[in-house]
Amino acid sequence: MAKSALLKSSLAKKYWMALTGLFLCLFLAGHLAGNLQLIFSDASAFNKYALFMTSNPAVKILSYLTYFSILFHAFDGFLLTYQNIKARPIGYAKNNPSKNSSFSSRNMAVLGTLILVFIVTHMVNFWAKMHFDKNMPLQTITVEQMGQKMDYYVTTDNGKFYPADASQLEQMGLEIRNRTEFYNKQANVKMAEGYKDLHKITVAFFKNSKFGLIATLAYVLAMFVLAFHLWHGFQSAFQSMGLNHPRYTPFIKGFGKAFAVLVPLLFAIIPVYIHFFLK
């Protein structure tokens, strides 16, 4: 009885909704900290971070938790919404809901669906490229030596140069395997790891002469949607889990609203900065 109650009942669905929603809030905070390096740090710091995020085992676990949370949150949300629509087969001829509830709270499913659409396009544009794109460029730097400009790969092998030129690389007895790994051909040992240039891809994406502006505007719009979702969602999750207390709830509500405004705002600043101000 108790066991099945924790999976099937209305309240159980609400607990899962709240838990996955709050976990996604944590994810947002982490993701934001990483993204901010796009504007507050240089390309190599950002690409280092991107490599860390796609290879570190602890991060792997977190990322699977995140995929699961998004899928489950969306699935559970659709299920709840379906049941809620069924609970009122005939609607009111005249209804006045703005007198008793907020816009956000009444439109969580629509806002969530828009977020889902955003997440999918966002993952196609960046996540999938980072993970699967065979043509993903490696990060290079240009160094001027005796009046001559030369490109070098940025790698984990600090201090050593790996020329970004196939014939020179060949001369040094090096080759690139698995897209990012620099091998000493003769000894068959891995010398260093190159960084996929996610920074370059991102900047190119938002500065694209045809779609850059649309992409930037769409991103900003998505962050508005996220803000509305969180405006109601953050504090709502605590109520769902039964945490409502005269002393703490006002703080949770205040924090939730600050979170709902600040996080999407900071996310949105990044593409705007890249598109309009980055040289």
């Binding site: 709840l80 007198k99 008793n100 509830s101 709270s105």
Partner: peptide
């Protein structure tokens, strides 16, 4: 009974 699921809109408390 077929009642829906609360989404914490708070409308009930107001009305």
């Amino acid at each position: 009974e077929g009642f829906g699921n609360c989404t914490n809109t708070g409308a009930c408390e107001v009305e």
